[in-house]
Design a protein around this nucleic acid. Sequence first.
DNA 1: CAAACATATGAACAAGTGTTCATGCGTTTA
DNA 2: TAAACGCATGAACACTTGTTCATATGTTTG
Lengths: 121, 121
Amino acid sequence: MVPKLKNAPRCGQEHHHQEAVDQVLAHLPGEDDLYDLAELFKVFGDSTRVKILYVLFEQELCVCDMAQLLGMTQIAVSHQLRILKANSLVKFRRQGKTVFYSLDDDHVRSILALGMEHIRE
Amino acid sequence: MVPKLKNAPRCGQEHHHQEAVDQVLAHLPGEDDLYDLAELFKVFGDSTRVKILYVLFEQELCVCDMAQLLGMTQIAVSHQLRILKANSLVKFRRQGKTVFYSLDDDHVRSILALGMEHIRE
DNA sequence: CAAACATATGAACAAGTGTTCATGCGTTTA
DNA sequence: TAAACGCATGAACACTTGTTCATATGTTTG
């Protein structure tokens, strides 16, 4: 019942379309860009942060308003805003004791909108 | 040196711009959509998967080619392809023993491109 | 039909990530 | 200037997530 030869542990890499592989390598973005791109999407990849971004879609809001809107602690919102800020997804302005946040640019809006289209198709 | 009253544990929610809050609530997507959107971006938020997607940016490839291109195990690639497939980011066709993968639609290409623009600005 | 091959799947471990608690910072007001 | 207020930060815990090992599918070939 035992086969004479076990399956090879890995693909033998014999049937490759080497031409295709080379062409891909020529057009592939740098390792750093791909890494940073993933880091960017990682920021979008949390429902709390997506909610915050959508809450800011049309107007600026202060931290306290967001906390109320999202039913979250102010602390939790602050932590996420820090991450969003660090990745240039939101900007802020200070007015007295209050800090107002808003989306950094239309880039962010476009990415959100495209993603929304995708999940709804 | 001790203050008479400690700070309140949370924001008192007294200074809110209730009008703004109500307006946001009226335009906010549903809870499910926001959750699904985050799940989608979570898929983009891994450097391995981003690499796979970019490797497929211009042409279809088999699993073995991808494994070689990315310097990864075929097993690891397969696991990620499963996730990408489940979220409709890639599609595939079978040809004999080989399975060729490609990007599902231009939606995916657009999201990748927009993200790349953002990190490069 | 059994062996070889390309790919897929399940369980388990290691590493990363978000929340909370406690506390600190910066601004205003009495 | 001290207290109140809105917000920010650091450490610790619980949970999620990606990888690997072993094994299972499905397809082709002798």
